[in-house]
């Protein structure tokens, strides 16, 4: 795929899982952040093509970080990845063509489907996607 991704989650396990699925699909992970504050800083520095963003995090939560990223770049592609499978999360991105949401736990299929949708990629763009 060749797209550059920033992974944001306070859990190293969650970041490792997302990284594994994305790298297998040919995406480049350009940075990892462990809270919302780091996410905003790294987004500004790295200008990634896509951000995967956890919601429940210390310091600044994911929704606050999402809104801040939106202010800085209204066209940034952001996928909220959270165990809070609730209406208010879905509504945050419901009318946002550059926003997505997948609940934890997720499979590589779930994640890559959301990634492809946001980045307008075909399945043929990656060669080693696991279901």
């Amino acid at each position: 795929m060749g797209q550059r991704v920033l992974i944001v989650d306070d859990s190293r396990l969650a970041r490792a899982t997302v990284r594994k699925y994305l790298v297998q699909a040919g995406l480049e992970v350009v940075g990892e952040a462990g809270n919302g504050r780091e996410a905003i800083d790294m987004f500004t520095q790295l200008s990634p093509d896509l951000v995967t963003l956890d919601v429940t995090m210390p310091e600044i939560d994911g929704l606050t970080a999402f809104r801040e990223i939106r202010k800085r770049d209204p066209s940034a592609a952001v996928i909220l990845v959270t165990s809070l499978d609730q209406k208010f999360i879905a509504e945050e991105v419901a009318h946002d063509p550059r926003g997505g949401f997948i609940p934890k736990p997720f499979s590589s299929f779930d994640l890559l489907k959301a990634v492809r949708q946001l980045l307008n990629l075909d399945e043929s763009d990656d060669s080693s996607v696991e279901g």
């Binding site: 859990s11 969650a14 429940t56 165990s83 809070l84």
Partner: peptide, 17 residues
Amino acid sequence: LDSLKEVGNVGAGHAAS
């Protein structure tokens, strides 16, 4: 320790939902 927290996070998030 991080892994156990994430397991708890997934469970607690779903219970709260």
